[in-house]
Each structure stands twice: as structure tokens, then as C-alpha cells.
């Protein structure tokens, strides 16, 4: 995921628009963390707060976790709140970014 940011800032901007929303982050280690997106940076490192659901069987220590920092490169999937995603805007942005990439 972090490599994508080298090609453009679209995903970064997109995730920034989801700050304050509830998302589920699935790590490459199979750990799923549900929480409120607190912040995201250019490497798509994700900070979550008010964490509620984690795989407590595999990672018992995560039960008592409230805030966490996730390295962008270990994120496998991010589940988004569908009501919060403006698909039309995302498509338009993808077009603009692709056009800019072609110019380079």
C-alpha cells in the first residue's frame, strides 16, 4: 500500500476524507481491527482510536487496546463505510490522477 503513494496522493487524500469515520483494518497478519480513523499519513500509516472488535483468540492482548498505530505496508484491506464513500468523486479523482501521471 505504501508504494501506491509514490504514484500519487489520491489514496492519501481519500483516506483523509474518512477521518472520524469507523473503518475495519485487516492486517497481513490476519488481525482485523475495527476503530475510528484518527489520522493517516503519506505512507498510509493508520492511527485508530476507540477500537472495538479484534480477533481476541489469536491476539488476546489486543482486547485491552484502545488506540493503535498501524504501519501502512502491513495493511491488507481496509473496509470502508459505504455511505461515506463518494464513488463518483473517487472516479473523477482517479481520472485526474491518471491524466497527471501520463504527463510525467
Amino acid at each position: 500500500m505504501s508504494r501506491i503513494s509514490h504514484n500519487g496522493q489520491l489514496f492519501f487524500s481519500f483516506f483523509k476524507s474518512l477521518v472520524g469515520k469507523e473503518i475495519i483494518v485487516e492486517l497481513k497478519s490476519d488481525l482485523c481491527i475495527k476503530g475510528t480513523l484518527h489520522s493517516v499519513d503519506q505512507y498510509l500509516n493508520i492511527k485508530l482510536k476507540d477500537i472495538s472488535v479484534v480477533d481476541s483468540e489469536k491476539f488476546p492482548h489486543m482486547i485491552s487496546v484502545q488506540n493503535c498505530f498501524i504501519r501502512g505496508s502491513v495493511v491488507r484491506y481496509v473496509q470502508l463505510p459505504s455511505a461515506e464513500v463518494d464513488i463518483q468523486l473517487l472516479q473523477d479523482s482517479a481520472r485526474v490522477e491518471a491524466r497527471e501521471l501520463k504527463k510525467k
Binding site: 492486517l27 497478519s29 482486547i63 485491552s64 484502545q66 488506540n67 493503535c68 504501519r71
Partner: peptide, 25 residues
């Protein structure tokens, strides 16, 4: 860069952890 995730973990009953800590994967 080998620390993939870190978090504030509150004291819990699991394996007798009685103090809050920084939990890392």
C-alpha cells in the same frame, strides 16, 4: 520498521498483566 503495529494496551487479566503498556507487533 520491523514494528508493524503498536498500541496502548490497558491492564487486563490475560497472563496477569497488571499494568498498562505499549503493545507491539
Amino acid at each position: 520498521y520491523h514494528i508493524t503495529c503498536h498500541a496502548v494496551a490497558k491492564a487486563n487479566s490475560f497472563d496477569g498483566q497488571t499494568q498498562d503498556c505499549i503493545y507491539c507487533q
